[in-house]
Write a protein that binds this DNA or RNA. Structure first.
Lengths: 328, 328
DNA sequence: TTGTAAGCGTTATCAG
DNA sequence: CTGATAACGCTTACAA
């Protein structure tokens, strides 16, 4: 920057102004500085600028994993919206580990980001303390906690689960099972609660669910295994609600192996409306959630807070939608 | 930091040492400083540290999009490996736009990252200039350019395409088509070239491909459309090689709609071995690539360069694997 | 083992 | 409209 200033015969602060507030510089001077910048290939050091101005155009985001994840569109949305505001995204995968999450959050906080976007409402005690004292906006996405000190952009997983099971009952299915490891996240847990509530309201309240407490991700393999176990235990099950489309894919796969036709012998419903869900004649009935929008809203929320003293945590409900296809 | 120093009755530099090189501080002093840090909830400002030490523990990564992308596992791998080295990931989605790419790269460079990971070998003139003069290691992933000023971690898309088509000829398929928009990336282009080379070597050299020059992503819809158009033009086609599994999914979907059975009437091969590819009796024959490893290697390459003067660009070939399943 | 002084590259503040 | 000066929070280099 000193070189640019010298070449343009101005002081450094004028170079700074040309970059940040071009209007406040005489057009002649501006032109001189701009060509000096170009000639020298000068790239401003934003870190130094942040330090000096006590601002930061960085936002941190944490996701369990990206592979086969429902959150990819949310990250796309975040990235897209942040770019428009000249902000950058610090990103990390926690791999479903609370310890890694804590580690990542602590590390990100050292960069003094303008905000943090999280996909997990459950944190270690240490993490909570970090979050409560860091003084930047924290946005939880893909859920809508009743009480929370932080912002949230999402929807009611309970209500969405309830709505899907209600829909199944409306189609006259009577003996509905639940597939999915509810322990992987609060989201899965809430979908399970929604399922249970609907069973109580529309059915006889019986819960059909293999709760083996096995750890592990909600992948297709698990969907297939739980489907098989569920039918072994309750052979007259006529529908299953899966906590994710990936689980549903496994369930459909297993149904096929077992010679069951869907939805005639058994109906299958998923959650998420993943890319593959309406393809290959899969035609999966599922719950659609506006993932990209969630990312955009989360970014916007953080951008809005910029510089503000802390105030009331906001909640944005983006809703959900039952997508009726062939499997139920 | 000044507060911590005062509370522990030491100078700031001692606090700094306790954080960065604890061994170089007397254990008593260290304990005093550490408890002061804890009491005050002090979080070091890494940006300030970077500025002072002229280092940076940040790595930038750019991919077209995350949704339904083959690169998600690579980002997971990057994030995982970087964490072990206490580095952080700056991430952005270019949305297949060269202009956005240029914008993102310019913006990231302002943060003075330790390195850059890119998924696109084709850049605007401006971008190339930026990359050549930025003085940090740049790693191109998912391909292996013959000549390049940058590092690369990937595999030969040409050879992988060739190998798959060679495999199809080995199964006695004779009239093989290609599905996919080769213009979306150099990777698709190379896969097409590989297909063409195999057709020349093992077949009569005829190229069956709908080159409508339509822009747009290689999604399932496109796979279905191209499949239909291909068969309309060459009804006796007995196999298709798709440039991605997502395209293949669309092709399979369309085959089903057209009442064709796979692989009896027509074989279908994909590329990528996405999560869904061996599920739901889809059993897609495809090419597997170690995406996670690519990310890990790319991170490692950048970490290795840290502080070094620039030297010979390295190329790491992670290979590929034909995954033989039911569709071909 | 600890401390002092200088400086990293930028911007806020106040003057002119 | 432009500039001088003093930070921003930390680390290097050198001293003690």
């Amino acid at each position: 920057m000193a070189d640019v200033a010298e070449r343009a015969n101005v002081s450094m602060i004028t170079v700074s102004r040309v970059i940040r507030t071009p209007d406040k510089v005489a057009s002649e001077t501006r032109a001189r500085v701009q060509s000096a910048i170009k000639d020298l290939g000068y790239v401003p050091n934003e870190g130094a600028g942040d330090l000096s101005s006590q601002q930061n155009r960085t936002v941190g985001a944490l996701i369990p994993t990206l592979t086969g994840s429902a959150f990819t569109s949310t990250i796309d949305g975040l990235s897209t919206r942040l770019r428009l505001a000249q902000h950058q995204l610090l990103f990390a995968c926690t791999d479903y580990s609370s310890d890694k999450e804590e580690d990542f959050i602590a590390t990100m906080l050292r960069r003094r980001p303008a905000g943090l976007v999280l996909t997990s409402g459950t944190h270690t005690r240490e993490t909570k303390a970090l979050l409560d004292h860091c003084g930047i906006p924290v946005v939880e996405v893909w859920e809508l906690p009743e009480v929370s000190a932080h912002h949230a952009v999402g929807f009611s997983n309970h209500d969405a689960g309830f709505a899907m099971v209600e829909y199944l009952y409306g189609l006259s299915y009577q003996r509905i099972g639940f597939i999915g490891n509810a322990l992987t996240s609060n989201r899965s847990q809430q979908r399970l609660y929604g399922y249970e509530a609907a069973c109580r309201q529309y059915g006889n309240g019986q819960i059909r669910r293999i709760s083996d407490n096995k750890k592990g991700p909600n992948n297709s393999r698990r969907g297939a295994q739980e489907f098989e176990a569920l039918l072994a235990k309750w052979p007259d099950t006529d529908a299953v609600f899966c906590a994710s489309d990936t689980l549903a894919l496994g369930a459909l796969s297993q149904a096929k192996r077992m010679g069951l036709s869907v939805p005639e012998d058994i109906a299958v419903a998923g959650f998420g409306d993943f890319e593959f869900s309406d393809e290959y004649g899969l035609d999966l009935t599922t719950v659609r959630v506006p993932g990209f929008q969630i990312g955009e809203f989360a970014a916007q929320l953080i951008l809005n807070q910029d510089g503000l003293a802390r105030h009331v945590p906001q909640k944005i409900d983006v809703g959900y939608e039952i997508v009726r296809r062939r499997t139920a």
